[in-house]
Nucleic acid binder design. Sequence first.
DNA 1: TATCTATATGTTATCGTTAATTTGTGCAAA
DNA 2: TTTGCACAAATTAACGATAACATATAGATA
Lengths: 340, 340
Amino acid sequence: MSSPRVTLKDIALACGYSANTVSRALRNDAMLSEATRGLIRETAKKMGYIPNTMASSLRSGRSRMIAVIVNDLHNQHYCDLINRMDAALRRENYTLMIFCMQLDDSLAEKLIHSAISLSVDGILYFPCFGQQHYVEYMIDNRMPFLLLDRRLDNVEADLVRNDDEQGGYLAGRHLAALGHRRFLFLSGVEKSSSQVDRLGGFLRALDDCGIPRENVRIVPGAAVEDAVAHERIGELVFPMDYSAIVSFRDEVAYPVMQVLRECGVSIPEDVSIISFDNLRGTDPTRPFLTSIYTDGQNIAELGVRMLLERIADPELPPRNMILPVRIFDQGTTAPPKPAP
Amino acid sequence: MSSPRVTLKDIALACGYSANTVSRALRNDAMLSEATRGLIRETAKKMGYIPNTMASSLRSGRSRMIAVIVNDLHNQHYCDLINRMDAALRRENYTLMIFCMQLDDSLAEKLIHSAISLSVDGILYFPCFGQQHYVEYMIDNRMPFLLLDRRLDNVEADLVRNDDEQGGYLAGRHLAALGHRRFLFLSGVEKSSSQVDRLGGFLRALDDCGIPRENVRIVPGAAVEDAVAHERIGELVFPMDYSAIVSFRDEVAYPVMQVLRECGVSIPEDVSIISFDNLRGTDPTRPFLTSIYTDGQNIAELGVRMLLERIADPELPPRNMILPVRIFDQGTTAPPKPAP
DNA sequence: TATCTATATGTTATCGTTAATTTGTGCAAA
DNA sequence: TTTGCACAAATTAACGATAACATATAGATA
């Protein structure tokens, strides 16, 4: 009774053709009469045939699978991008496989290893901590890949990311224009390029506006991003030697706003706050957070397209796409309170 | 220059053994001298060998890959479970592949198809909308699988879930004991067993306490879970003909609390709220939400173990594991306000 | 009629690995 | 010396699909 899976051979036997013909019928290969193709496809369906990806990709060298390697599934920004890329790839008849390193950076190499071992056709990679040897690992193994969200120093590779520097700049100009002069900057992972660029752009804006850099207090984000650390938020945001907060990402801003409000601080009346990501869909706060807008749909579709092009032509020169950002003012920024 | 990947044959050639011997050395198969094994393993490492899963699993019939099929990556409860299962599987030297159906139920069949096509050894399946034919699809294809979180009517299969009925009951008893008599119940997907059971348990508690069922206003959750629908929360929570809210899951409770507070409703002074999931790590609210505690670590580890046992012995009778739940009182419930 | 060509199919070899089987070697027991 | 056996390795044959090549047939052309 333990019938193993239906194979091409079974179908061939059932309808009197050779396995090869069946294979071609199912792949819509040329040189087949309409009648034969129809009969074979119908038989295959009737028999519940499920093609064996292993065998197919072993022989053909292509698997129509793409791996995405991401740091943390809890981060809504990633989830969102992954969902969109999944949809875009499905449209091209690819299957996306998600590999998550669960904040454990040392897993990256294992995951890339897994992906190569699985013969995926390409890898979508979100670098996290600025290391490069993982990238070299993919290059050494001739695995087509695309970097997302963050650049890596000294790495020449396909890359799609937002213009984080410009984003930081916009945030700075916006707050400065409102009259703010002293800031709290909640930063992200120190070496990540998005972090560096956002901060860099922000400081450039301050320079442009003649505001000294000493007026910015920079707080390491890990202290806030770590869930347990929510308890310590109070220690970070007080004393309030600032009138505006710049948060590295929305999910950092949420609990901070919550803590401030508990302490009787009104937003934006007492303190302005601006952030990055613009996770509008899941924003649990009111008024909605003023945030730097990054077009997820754009990144996802462009990224998928670039990776597929890279797969089609490995000799293509590396391309670096930087997407423009916009500020999305939803009401958590206002002019600072006049000094009492 | 375009050297394809290193294969067993290449290693065999390099160190003067047959491909089979190399294979056995790398798999730690018996009947090999220590010296040979050592030499081969070292050579393989030096040459940067990455085994070809496709070939290996085609031949051996086992892939050491497990697929998890989940509805929505944005749901933190799932992300959390997936991360834990991933870790548990990695310990057993399995690779977990995440397939997400992005709230589009019709994708389930395609994803199962993909997983079978990939020859995964087993599937971890989170049923969403109560359909059964997907399960039959796996059974028909002799694919070992495990149902998570929700039962399906008339399906005899391995299942791990929380005692949702008991959870609902605990919530009801807790609120009733505090003195609440009128309730708003924010429900989830209508046909999902967790939804049905939680509501069922809650109503049973009311019965036990002699509170008539008419005192519960049930609001369909879709109206809240949908992000865009946040705008409409106001219409659902008013008029306040209740003193306590039961929310189907934490992420539904968050925006509701936010809206209530904006309207000047204090929690728990004016309204108590209790929920399910207990997503303590990412809870953006203060005080932390009182929630029904479900042990993610338990579910994940037990689930992985059960699936692996099922893979090892397909003839095992189906097992149904129901894990106990506890109430985690963190401060969003209190006695109701005395009538004015 | 003989030859050519386009079309529709079958045959065979192969992808990289592993299972099954076979071969070879050295040493102990008869 | 012969036999037997344990061990170490090589050889061969799959797994299921597909690419490359070979074959067969029908109709068109000379």
